[in-house]
Design a protein around this nucleic acid. Structure first.
Lengths: 232, 232
DNA sequence: TAACGAAGTAACCAGTTAGTGCGTTAATTG
DNA sequence: CAATTAACGCACTAACTGGTTACTTCGTTA
């Protein structure tokens, strides 16, 4: 009736996570902002990859990350901002891995084959990347547009391919006049399409697209395709 | 107080759609199940293509179709069933168009080029197809799996390609040993990937992917890629 | 022409979902 | 060690959304 009404909320005491017999796993520290952020990012990557931006559920991400939903909003601001963070990290990861291929140290044709193999294997081992990119394109690259870091990393990547093609032409192993962008897109396409559309393709072609020999056959076919395209 | 309470709903009188000066367009009949169904399908195709299955809004579809939401559930049962209907129609449409190409009447190399051109142009003119397929793959082809009609149409399509390759080998214009499925996937991939990922690609490659000359360049590159792949 | 089934409609509902208010608890620092 | 700061958590809500109820009205046909 008078003054402030007493809070009717009930708060539980923190439960120590030292459950008996649960050792072996490194014990989660009680407070660790970076670790929590990382767990949220990982969980979000999975969830966004599985259901797309619209289909993903923030509650699900929180649960998977073993974090409170409030933390997501604390660290990332909104569902969309979280998506953007996840997407940016995914792009940066593949671009970084590409830089590590050290293609400059190899003869042009070997370098190109290595790139085709790498691209294929990266998609294969990081299926979330493909789905995230699909989602982002459904949203007309609205999020990627904002990332300056991605633009810089992309330029470096395109430059690397330009250099590789030039070198191949100079050494007489590649025919001249090939556009680096077109080649890049093709290398990505022949792997990406196979993997992203493997479910519908399995029905159309009545094959198990993910069988070990099917995957090997595809990689060999793709290398062949690219080599026939560039060789003199 | 007693007996049935009177309905408190207010019903509006049907509004005749003979708005002054709106002629020229063929007047919509007051009752036309087929037309309504078709409008719903078209609206759904747009909405699903634009936002994906999860992102699409049934209310939006109803509005765009100028139909009542109840009609969607009356004709299609559920949002998912509507998606399935739209997807099936989309697949049937491209498979039908392919059959009409009459590739058997052409020399093998010309037939193949025609198919590459057709595939590219079909994707270009039917952007919803690509996005629907992406959505369906996000859902692991859950809906397509149920469609027997698609399976039959697919078999016919694969058979056509098999025949074309065989004929090319016999006539000595194609090299032997090419797998029809791999080739098919590649033909689709190099067009599909370019178009579906045009938004992120525009950022990575800093190009306008949809500029007229960019599109022409890509088609030429794709034809070249396929021809180098199959020719002896 | 009465009557019946199909086409059409608006209001409603129950469950979901992104996002918050407001509090507690652990770590850090003066 | 007191005070401040940052991490964390529960309960809640406003808006949304797929689906339904309960009707009206049109077109056809027995």
């Amino acid at each position: 009736m008078t003054g402030k009404p007493a809070s009717n909320r009930v708060y539980l005491v923190y439960v120590k996570d030292e459950e008996a017999g649960m050792s072996g796993q490194e014990k989660r520290k009680t407070r660790d902002a970076e670790a929590t952020k990382k767990r949220i990012m990982q969980a979000a990557k999975k969830e966004f990859a599985k259901h797309g931006l619209a289909g993903a559920r923030v509650d699900e991400i929180a649960e998977r990350a073993k974090a409170n939903k409030r933390m997501i909003y604390h660290y990332f601001g909104s569902k969309e901002d979280l998506f953007q963070a996840v997407l940016e990290e995914a792009y940066l990861d593949i671009r970084t891995a590409e830089q590590k291929l050290d293609l400059e140290a190899l003869p042009p044709d070997e370098a190109l084959e290595r790139l085709v193999r790498f691209t294929w294997n990266y998609y294969l081992k990081n299926p979330e990347f493909i789905t995230l990119v699909n989602s982002e394109n459904l949203h007309r690259a609205r999020h990627l547009k904002k990332s300056e870091r991605i633009k810089i990393a992309s330029r470096k990547f395109v430059g690397m391919m330009d250099g590789l093609l030039d070198r191949g032409v100079k050494e007489g192993v590649f025919r001249p006049g090939i556009d680096a962008t077109q080649l890049n897109i093709t290398i990505a396409a022949i792997g990406y399409y196979y993997l992203t559309n493997r479910f519908t393709a399995a029905i159309v072609f009545e094959r198990d697209m993910m069988a070990k020999d099917a995957l090997e056959e595809r990689l060999a076919f793709n290398i062949d395709t690219v080599m026939r395209l560039v060789k003199v």
